[in-house]
Design a binder for these strands. Sequence first.
DNA 1: AATTTTGTGGAGTATTTTCTTCACTAGCCC
DNA 2: GGGCTAGTGAAGAAAATACTCCACAAAATT
Lengths: 291, 291
Amino acid sequence: METAQGLTVAERIRGKFERLTRAERQLANAMLANYPVSGLGSITAVAAASGVSTPTVARMAKKLDFGGFPELQAQLRSELKATISNPIAKHDRWAENAPDTHILNRFADAVMENMRQTLAQINPDAFNAVAALLSDHDRSVHVVGGRITRSLADYFFTHMQVIRNGVTQIASNSNTWPHYVLNMKAGDVLVAFDIRRYEHDIVRLAEMARSKDVTLVLFTDQWGSPTAKHATHSFHSRIEAPSAWDSSVMILFIVEALIAAVQTATWEETRDRMNALEALFDRTKLFRKFI
Amino acid sequence: METAQGLTVAERIRGKFERLTRAERQLANAMLANYPVSGLGSITAVAAASGVSTPTVARMAKKLDFGGFPELQAQLRSELKATISNPIAKHDRWAENAPDTHILNRFADAVMENMRQTLAQINPDAFNAVAALLSDHDRSVHVVGGRITRSLADYFFTHMQVIRNGVTQIASNSNTWPHYVLNMKAGDVLVAFDIRRYEHDIVRLAEMARSKDVTLVLFTDQWGSPTAKHATHSFHSRIEAPSAWDSSVMILFIVEALIAAVQTATWEETRDRMNALEALFDRTKLFRKFI
DNA sequence: AATTTTGTGGAGTATTTTCTTCACTAGCCC
DNA sequence: GGGCTAGTGAAGAAAATACTCCACAAAATT
């Protein structure tokens, strides 16, 4: 057995994380959040804050090679003392063990910047309006993506399909798109994703949809797809990344926020649908009874 | 009597210092030195460290208008939490025109926290090792996802397919998975995505793959899919979100960073492939000549 | 489906911590 | 010096914290 002497509590937790049980992982996460302050209360308080029982806390302390919880806590205090008396040791880096120039840290900086800028220029009213459109059950929702954004469209579709009725995913093959337009009716919503290397066909689809009085919601990049001129609402995400590729992180961010908003607005119905889904899962035994 | 509400422990000590007795001043000085860590041990430890008796500590706590020593200590912890948990200046608001409580701002806070924690516990060596595996052209890469994570697997696949040869996407229908295993050879890499509601079938696939000496790279959540025990490398992303759904943002983040890393490592070949792809796009006129 | 293994928290016990009492001491005033 | 007051810590009581055991439940295995 390796000796854990000299390791910080955080390091011990991470090193043993794989070998921890469910409740212990829950506790470990709570302790790493707001580390190390979250571990400084009484065992009772720490347990309650993590949603586990006190025995779990005591057991984990021993698993991490401490004599008991108080010993773990003493270690936390001594780490804290070292950190506090060394104010330069601030978080300059995201991934602490990697150099500044590591792609993880450069990516983190870029994403932060994208987040700041995207959210600064987003229009909350447009966001709310789109959430309202998507919560309206009289409108069917059609989802389409391009070469890269297809995955994001798929992600959006998978969630919306659970949340509400009347959601269609439009297949990637643009030859068949007119078929989908046949099923669109006035008032429906077309959610399209198009980022640079903007795709011709998406514009055409948008035009067809507009001619049927379909409302177009567009997810695009900071420059804006040509489709934007047909869109009722468009979300411009910054997609800058230290990579030959663009970053879709902020698009996913907005998609998820929108899913949460629609979910909340339609909670009555969605709850029933989710329960029904649970029941179906139980019958198929697709998932583990776990967490 | 003035109310001490809202004052820090240090402020209360300084404000009352004149009215403290000799032993109490000794204690006060000890607590202010190395503040606030020096006040975090048990009352016995604090007393011993200051060279006073425990009743002196308890008495002073009351003199400072706390109900008792534990109450004083709780205040110290909350001060510490406020100080520590502020390494990257917290935005008051992300979306400036929306209220704090708007889902966009709540989501932004959650994603920031996920980013901080995910990156703090990621192992850069593992990251580099995975990038190297995926850059090795003698190894085929197989990509698989679950119900929700399918989209992420798809996103990863779409990019890898451009970057290098020998990348296979495993279809969602798990009935056909054994067919894919037939094509796996020793040294190949299986990239699997599995977040909670962990899926039985992914574990089985992992087992089959392992039996053929395939290296398993797993993207999972902070708790870890049961598949993690078969994995050579696993990335744990925090997926906390103010939503009934989990957030995949950090998973996408790591995927994109990994794509960038592989891209860089294999740039010679990838450049040629991307040029060839451009030529194909020109012929199909799929995209606009734009940007 | 049955059995074994593993994990979990309730409940009770042991331990430690915190508080209170009280006797003693030091300083001060008369 | 004697009497007074205020301050202090030893010792024990009260309260909490930390730990252990055990029954039950969930998961894995057969």
